[in-house]
């Protein structure tokens, strides 16, 4: 259980890191928090020829304002700094609620949002949240940079739209708007384990208290994070009560394709998705009313 030999390079600048990635492509990996990458290297499931350690690049970390009502989170921002930043609870309540459910405190001290999104584990909370929020991600290579919508970024299990020479620089997310409420819930076997199913819900109300927009996303419900488009759209224009929530939960159940495992069959996952959608939607709706 020791990693195979590789060349270690502590990046001095973003340009140098991008240059190395351009030269070595898939043979090289960026090392962020190491909390997903190093376990697989210890088991020799991953044997990169080179690790480009981006931890020295402090300019990649931090939470700041984007254009208009959006926030930008640097790729190297650790879960722990997000947990401690009051802006997370104020503007990104979905993330604030999910953070304590991601792994354990010691993992959150190292793990980064960029590493998590680039890793794109379908069971992971953050990709589902970024997709539900309709965020976008900035990728950069030695040749230039581009923005990628979350809906295009997550391609499948452990697969993203990032090219072999690209680094994820930051993610941009909308701040929670007025008259809105959010809720993240998941079920896992033990504290800190990956979710059997996780559900992210946002409800925004109009002046009359009807649903102006709802967004529902799930983790561990398919090949990648899932945005439940039909269920989300079913609530628009309606006064959200138990009937509407029940209908949305049914749509979620028919829209997802969970993989099943020895711990939870597909049927059980689908059942839990319905239960959690019902609860999380009701809570998000209550919170939106409280904020109205």
């Amino acid at each position: 259980m020791k990693p195979a030999p590789f060349q270690y390079v502590a990046a001095r600048t973003i340009e140098q890191a991008l240059q190395l990635k351009a030269e070595h492509g898939d043979e090289a990996r960026f090392l962020a928090g190491g909390q997903s990458l190093v376990p697989t290297m210890n088991f020799r499931l991953t044997q990169p020829a080179m690790l480009i350690d981006i931890n020295p690049l402090h300019e990649l970390a931090g939470l700041g304002n984007g254009p208009a009502v959006r926030l930008r989170i640097g790729a190297l921002t650790r879960y722990r700094s997000l947990e401690r930043d009051p802006a997370t609870a104020r503007h990104l309540p979905l993330i604030a609620e999910a953070l304590p459910l991601i792994a354990h405190p010691q993992i959150r001290n190292r793990g980064t949002i960029g590493g998590n999104l680039a890793h794109a584990d379908p069971a992971s909370e953050m990709p589902a949240i970024v997709l539900t929020l309709g965020g976008r991600l900035r990728a950069r290579s030695a040749k230039g940079e581009r923005w990628i919508d979350a809906a295009d970024f997550f391609v499948g299990a452990l697969t993203t739209a990032l090219e072999p020479d690209e680094m994820l620089m930051e993610v941009e997310l909308p701040k929670a708007p007025p008259r809105s409420g959010a809720c993240f819930m998941e079920m896992s076997r033990r504290r800190g384990d990956f979710a059997i199913i996780g559900v992210a819900c946002i409800v925004r109300l109009d002046e009359a208290g009807r649903c102006a927009e709802a967004r529902i996303g799930l983790c561990n419900a398919g090949d990648g994070p899932v945005f439940a488009a039909r269920a989300s759209a079913s609530l628009t224009g309606r006064t959200v009560g138990s009937v509407e929530i029940g209908e949305a939960a049914k749509l979620v159940q028919s829209d997802i394709d969970p993989g099943g495992s020895i711990h939870a069959s597909k049927e059980f996952q689908r059942h839990i998705a319905g239960v959690l959608t019902t609860r999380a939607l009701a809570r998000a709706n209550e919170r939106a009313r409280g904020a109205a």
Binding site: M1, Y8, G34, Q35, V38, P39, N42, F43, L51, R80, A103, H104, P105, Q106, I107, N109, R110
Partner: peptide, 23 residues
């Protein structure tokens, strides 16, 4: 050696971390 058990936890720059997941 894959971050799950916590036996290897040390304090790195003031924060508890898994020493089996760092080089």
């Amino acid at each position: 050696e894959h971050g799950v058990c916590g036996a290897c936890t040390v304090i790195f720059d003031g924060a508890p971390v898994r020493s089996c997941l760092m080089f």
